[in-house]
Design a protein around this nucleic acid. Structure first.
Lengths: 115, 115
DNA sequence: TTGACATATTCCCATACTGGAATATAATAG
DNA sequence: CTATTATATTCCAGTATGGGAATATGTCAA
């Protein structure tokens, strides 16, 4: 087999740097496709394609305004990623290192009593 | 050009489902390669390969114990992703919807005064 | 050293990705 | 309708990928 499809997965959608740049741009407000392409210095078709992926996974929404299509961020779609990463928060917020605990024990600090 | 390389980017590293499963497993404690392979029902070489990528981007650490190699999570590596997603927090924590503001305005609530 | 076990690496293949270029579709103005 | 502008889609090429299989490397015991 090969690489898993990107199109329907939020994690893969944001794995692509250009798409993260687009999200960052859109977080400042809605933009037309040409605005996006211009601001990020990519061709219009590429902008269109990336926006399509982002739309597909629910990270952006669109509305039509004349012949323009205004894309806006739908940050809610990023919540799953945030939540997922948060599940590992303990690994950077607290010391779960056994050696560290042991040293504290030795010093009689006992910051985190056994029970 | 083609797809961006996965090996040196944390976002791409966690874009792969199997690797997320590995991280989740490791969050319960260190595991040998065979443990990982067994628990997740993947072949040993695949486990080894995924662990290599995770190691490369700093999401896991290894220590040798006899002929085993015990991998442990290094959740700190996920902090960048968490922080990045957090930058979009406003989009799910607050209402930035103009219609919503307008309705509040109509009701005289004025939760978020203009200045 | 030899054997057994644990892990890492290499080679191959089928797949799917991204960007470029060209083109198709959509919407508006005249 | 025609021209123009905005956006979307299609086709292509080069590349990286993940899994399978085979193999190499590493570690320990006897």
């Amino acid at each position: 087999m090969a690489r898993a499809a990107t199109t329907s997965d939020v994690f893969n959608a944001v794995a692509e740097p250009q798409r993260r740049r687009i999200l960052t741009l859109l977080s400042k407000g809605e933009r037309s496709v040409n605005d996006v392409a211009g601001s990020l210095h990519v061709r219009q078709p590429q902008a269109s394609k990336h926006l399509r992926v982002l739309k597909h996974v629910g990270l952006v929404k669109v509305r039509s305004d004349g012949q323009q299509r205004l894309y806006a961020i739908n940050g809610k779609g990023l919540k799953p990623i945030h939540e997922w990463a948060k599940g590992f928060e303990q690994f950077w917020n607290e010391s779960f290192d056994r050696l560290d605990d042991y040293l504290n024990e030795l010093q009689g600090k006992k910051k985190r009593p056994k029970s």
